[in-house]
């Protein structure tokens, strides 16, 4: 536990040692604002909720989260610190988890910084704060899934750009899994259980349930299991690809 915390703290402090953290936060907040007010038409809707804000999160994360996750291991590999880290008395799962928690809490910070939106909606109207809280939680869980995918793919390469692109592609698959484009491809030949299975992998459907205020265990578990699975895969990749 202590080791996870030490690794997490170091990782987090390195975000803020470079402009990366500040650039990310500013752009994230800017894009949140644009998507909520212009694309989402928040004022025109005349409803006291944050639905337009949350609706754009899956897309926003698709671009921004790989930018956070790409460096997690690829940079260690490139600069040789991987060898340093893995010859310190740290169990590999603690290192994987510590890095993940650092990135996740960074995203959590970004989400917390969107609270002016929440204050505004409470000031202008009388929203259901339970739904908003559930949506925030759902968004954080979904961000965690993106990050776990990103961490695993970052472990597979020493090139951050490759890590970024691979992560975007894989996350896009998870977003698009429930969409007609993908499902049509399978519907013609695949058995119904497979089509249902692919559809149920979609980030969108799970996130939309939660962000509408339906915080059921199934959706939460979906994201948690996905996170655990990808983190486990990350440690397998690191363990088997040290020499490169």
């Amino acid at each position: 536990m202590r080791l996870i915390w030490i690794i997490c703290r170091r990782e987090l402090s390195s975000y803020f040692a470079t402009p990366l953290a500040y650039v990310f936060l500013v752009i994230f907040l800017l894009l949140c604002g644009i998507s909520t007010f212009y694309l989402g038409g928040w004022y025109e809707r005349n409803q006291a909720d944050l639905q337009p804000f949350f609706d754009y999160h899956p897309l926003l994360y698709l671009v921004l989260i790989p930018a956070v996750s790409m460096r997690l291991w690829a940079e260690e590999r490139k600069t040789g610190t991987l060898e340093l880290l893995l010859t310190l008395p740290v169990p590999l799962p603690a290192a994987v988890l510590g890095k993940f928690l650092a990135a996740w809490s960074f995203i959590a910070l970004a989400l917390i910084l969107t609270c002016p939106l929440w204050i505004t909606v409470n000031w202008l109207g009388d929203p259901d704060n339970g739904v908003i809280l559930a949506a925030y939680l759902g968004s954080l869980l979904m961000a965690g899934s993106y990050l776990a995918i990103g961490e695993c793919l970052s472990a597979a390469t020493r090139n951050q750009v490759i890590a970024f692109i691979l992560t975007v592609v894989v996350c896009l698959l998870f977003i698009a899994a429930g969409s007609p484009i993908v499902l049509d491809l399978f519907q013609r030949w695949a058995p119904a259980w497979l089509v249902d299975g692919i559809a149920s992998l979609s980030f969108l459907t799970h996130f939309q349930d939660i962000s509408r205020g339906v915080l059921n265990l199934r959706d939460v578990l979906f994201f948690l299991i996905l996170i655990c699975g990808w983190l486990w895969a990350a440690s397998v990749v690191i363990e088997n690809k040290k020499a490169g």
Binding site: L3, S14, G80, L88
Partner: peptide, 27 residues
């Protein structure tokens, strides 16, 4: 063991004090 890998890799964005503190804590 104490180990100095080839090329003495270290977390470049950290300052010296913070880096040594990190290693000592992990140890």
């Amino acid at each position: 063991l104490g180990y100095l890998p080839e090329g003495a890799p270290a977390y470049g964005e950290m300052n010296v004090r913070a880096f040594l503190d990190f290693v000592a804590s992990v140890r």
